[in-house]
Amino acid sequence: MIRCDHLTKIYNGVPAVDDLCLEIPAGEVFGLLGPNGAGKSTTILMLVGLIQPTSGACYIDGVEVAAHPIEVKKKIGYMPEDVGFYADLAAEENLDYAARFYGLSEAERKRRVDDLLALVGLDGVGTKVGGYSKGMRQRLGLARALVNDPAVVILDEPTANLDPRGVLDYRRIVRSLADRGTTVLVSSHILPEVSKVCTSVGILARGRLIASGDREMLSRAAMQDRVTIDVETVTPMPRLTNPEVLSAEYSQDACSARIVAKHDISGFIAETLYAEGILPRRLAVEMPDMEDILLSYYTEGTA
């Protein structure tokens, strides 16, 4: 549904996006991750037709964005990071104005605007948008991105200003979009959010896609076939001997150890301790969280 083919954007001789090749199938909720300046927003701006690539191309539903921007814009819903509205208009007026560009009839616009305001929890808010909090604007931004019932939704930092209730609503909306077969591209710094709603992830660093795939695949790759096991015992433990062990660090009293092995050998460790009559206090296999995975890739990508 979304395809980037050697997509490149150069600003003043510096590549913001560098030879990006990416394919996101229909119905996928894809998380685009990366540190500041990685090229996430530039990629998104090219996908929504706001800037032209220096070279390469991007496609939405098989239509090249740069060649047919209007056709593409009709298929997508976009929420920018710095979402903005006309402060002197009410939420429904802002949404109605947006809906006019998609050729919806007045009755259809009214129905959609009412539904969307209810969806994001802004129905019945009478004030002008100028009086909205950042979180309310973010909710309204999400509603506006959906005003044309798009096949592709592109959200740039969608939960940046949301309160916990807003985040829950956002997750619910994204999941319901995915259930309906809508392709969602989420760019975010809030890593737990990405891991909670995205079915696959791409990691950008210095304009390049350094990794992509589903979360499990990425964590396996990030761990580089290594498992870290923390062991704590009541009495000193013996040195573990197993061909799977790559390294082991023991405390001076030998009551705690950090074992790095090729695979999860926690079962073997438990058996050894039991056989030696040693009472374990803690036996924990460290699974990397999204932040660890990301940091390992950032380090790799910027090295």
Partner: peptide, 14 residues
């Protein structure tokens, strides 16, 4: 200033 230009240009409009 209101940051609405990006959204406006993202609508199907030249």
């Amino acid at each position: 200033e209101s940051k609405s230009l990006k959204s406006l240009l993202a609508y199907p409009v030249f």
